[in-house]
């Protein structure tokens, strides 16, 4: 039944929406912690609160990803659902989303390059991970907003 398809489509977008919300919070807290470390605030109560938020957002992010992966597995197992839900519109938007991923990664790298002028950012691993995370969020956000506007 097509209502199954519409239901699964809606569910898929709901998981994506929550993933985006949690990932954005995670990214903000990750950057906050990064700059708190430079200021020596990570051992203070405010730094610990940020760490707790970071861990919680990471857990929620994993939950969203696991549920989303389980849904995708169910879709893959049924050729009819696979064809309907991974149709050419979805594939086209997924391809276009890589442009957003590139811009997100580049933007975050440039942000750190700019920040270097004011703070001694000397943690290449953190910069690389933040840039990759920003690219992943931009990729999914582009897909979510373009598909939602369809």
């Amino acid at each position: 039944m097509n209502t199954d398809i519409e239901y699964l489509d809606q569910q898929r977008m709901n998981y994506l929406k929550w993933y985006l919300v949690v990932s954005t919070i995670f990214m903000i807290l990750l950057l906050t912690r990064h700059f708190f470390r430079l200021s020596g605030l990570n051992s203070q109560p405010v730094g610990i609160a940020v760490l707790i938020g970071l861990v919680l957002s990471l857990i929620l992010q994993i939950i969203c990803l696991v549920r989303s992966a389980l849904l995708e597995r169910n879709i893959h197992q049924d050729p009819r659902l696979e064809a309907a839900l991974h149709n050419e519109l979805v594939k086209s938007l997924e391809t276009q989303s890589w442009i957003a991923a590139y811009l997100g990664t580049s933007g975050m790298t440039l942000f750190f390059a700019f920040t270097w002028s004011f703070y001694p950012v000397c943690d290449p691993v953190s910069i690389a991970l933040s840039a990759i995370a920003a690219g992943a969020i931009a990729n999914r956000a582009y897909f979510y907003f373009r598909y939602s506007m369809s």
């Binding site: 519409e6 309907a84 839900l85 519109l89 979805v90 369809s150």
Partner: peptide, 29 residues
């Protein structure tokens, strides 16, 4: 749109984007 989507086996959003000229369908679709 949903009934047409059911017959074509795509999502309603796909039919909506084609119908409103937001997306050019493949020859197959």
């Amino acid at each position: 749109q949903e009934e047409l989507a059911q017959r074509v086996n795509v999502t309603r959003k796909t039919i909506n984007t084609v119908e409103n000229r937001k997306f050019v369908p493949s020859a197959y679709l």
